[in-house]
């Protein structure tokens, strides 16, 4: 079991709001990228986010461009999971490849407020709301599971091709 504080957002939050385009070529270090996460949507986020916090959003989270920083700015803040009613396809791909677990849960954002705590079991099969209500989490395919377990696509391949003794 792990407990996660949630940050709740609405529909159609695009990649420019998650990580402003003006920074894509100027900010390079994980600390700098993390510091500007969600800056135009919720200035409180980057200052107050804690390790293990997760995002719970509405429809079409991450629409817009293919920039990977829109995922890494959250990962560098140690956000391990993003739950949304739906994801843009490219954002979903980027999440998996960056080792952040995208969970599709159509109603969840209606039942939660920023600051609520939810509980997720270790195998990521169910999540439990503060009021005890339980939502199932669709299982990941084995190949995608392997990417998360390794921390992302690049680390997974590194482990496969450069095994340590």
């Amino acid at each position: 079991m792990s407990q996660h504080r949630v940050w709740v957002y609405g529909d159609n939050v695009n990649t420019d709001i998650i990580f402003p385009g003006k920074y894509t070529y100027t900010l390079k270090t994980p600390e700098d990228i993390a510091a500007h996460a969600l800056e135009d949507l919720d200035p409180a986020f980057a200052t107050n986010v804690q390790v293990g916090d997760i995002i719970v959003a509405g429809e079409n989270w991450g629409c817009g461009s293919s920039r990977e920083q829109a995922v890494t700015c959250l990962r560098y803040n140690d956000v391990p999971i993003i739950i949304a009613a739906s994801f843009s396809g490219l954002y979903f791909r980027n999440c998996v490849n960056q080792g952040v677990h995208p969970i599709i849960c159509p109603e969840l954002h209606r039942f939660l407020q920023t600051g609520d705590i939810i509980t997720i079991d270790d195998a990521h099969t169910t999540l439990t709301l503060p009021n005890g209500r339980i939502f199932p989490i669709a299982p990941l395919s084995p190949s995608v599971r392997a990417i998360f377990d390794a921390g992302g696509l690049l680390p997974m391949l590194q482990t496969r091709f450069q095994p340590t003794e």
Partner: peptide, 18 residues
């Protein structure tokens, strides 16, 4: 696909797709 994904395709010949 992105550049990391292409590198992965070179390395293994396959990739996950939803």
């Amino acid at each position: 696909v992105g550049r990391t994904e292409m590198a992965a395709l070179w390395a293994t010949g396959e990739i996950w797709v939803r």
